[in-house]
Simulated scan of single mutants.
Amino acid sequence: MELENLVLDAHDPRRLGAFWEALLGGRRVTDEPDVVETRLSPEGAPVLDLCMTRVPEPVAPHPRLHLDLLGGDRQDEVVRQALSLGARHLDIGQGDVPWVVLADPEGNPFCVMEHRAEYRPGSPVAALPLDSADVDRDLAFWTALSGWVAEDTAMPAALRHPSGHGPLLELCPEPRPKPPGTKNRLHLDVRLAAGEDLDDAVAQALDLGGHEYDPGWGPLPWRLLTDPSGNEVCLLPPPRA
């Protein structure tokens, strides 16, 4: 299994897709009215797809997963570019911090980060901070599902692709529990490798504290789960031969 997609709910996938594609330097691989997918394949870093899918629900406050963009010496430049593409400054009570908090054109928060030694140059996404009710428990879950490996950073726990390149998946102590019945605006998709069995992968996730759920969409080729802290994750079948 390996982390493959970052999936962002959208009211207008093409508008939101154009924003993120331009800001991150992605290449569009799917362009449909309800789904837009842009591929991030920076040299030396793992490929990740950012998928915008149409949903009717409004943007909820307090997202549990968001994008931290690589800034460093280019922080001001990245902020100016984001603003020119339709982002806006956002005050979420962050106070005086060295990073810049912005909202994309649909109001989803993201950050443009200052220099940190653990961020890898080359990838436009520096980190994926994810709220966790129990960091050690969730670290075991995401280590098994993502195919990424633990890395020592200033955060309580973090994972990165085994190549040593690309963004961090950071597990952050949650400031508040996830409200019942709500869905994260941004979630992760994990792709099984050739020869891996989807039922076995689901069973492993459940053994590690995950939960499977059925939103009533009918038969799907993938499986819908949450991690032990309630964060959504999709398990995708192995790629077709």
Rank of each mutant, 00 (worst) to 15 (best):
M1G: 13
E4R: 15
V7Q: 01
A10Q: 02
D12N: 14
P13S: 05
A22F: 00
R27N: 01
P33S: 01
E43D: 15
A45Q: 01
P46T: 08
L48A: 04
L50Q: 09
C51K: 14
P56V: 03
E57Y: 10
L65I: 11
H66R: 04
V78F: 02
V78S: 05
A82M: 07
L83P: 02
L83F: 04
L83N: 06
L83I: 12
S84N: 10
S84P: 00
G86N: 08
A87Q: 10
I92F: 12
Q94S: 13
D96Q: 13
P98Q: 05
W99A: 08
V100A: 04
N108S: 10
P109V: 06
R120V: 15
R120M: 10
V125D: 04
A126K: 02
D136A: 14
A144M: 03
S146T: 15
A150F: 00
E151P: 01
E151M: 13
A154Q: 12
R160K: 06
H161P: 00
S163Y: 03
C172Q: 09
P175W: 02
K178M: 08
P179Y: 07
P179I: 08
P179M: 05
P179F: 09
H187G: 07
H187A: 08
H187R: 07
V190M: 10
G195Y: 11
D197M: 09
A203Y: 06
Q204P: 00
G210Q: 10
H211R: 15
H211V: 13
P215N: 11
G218P: 15
P219H: 02
R223A: 07
L224P: 01
L224C: 13
T226E: 11
D227H: 14
P228L: 12
S229K: 11
L236S: 07
P239N: 07
P239R: 05
R240Q: 11
A241D: 15
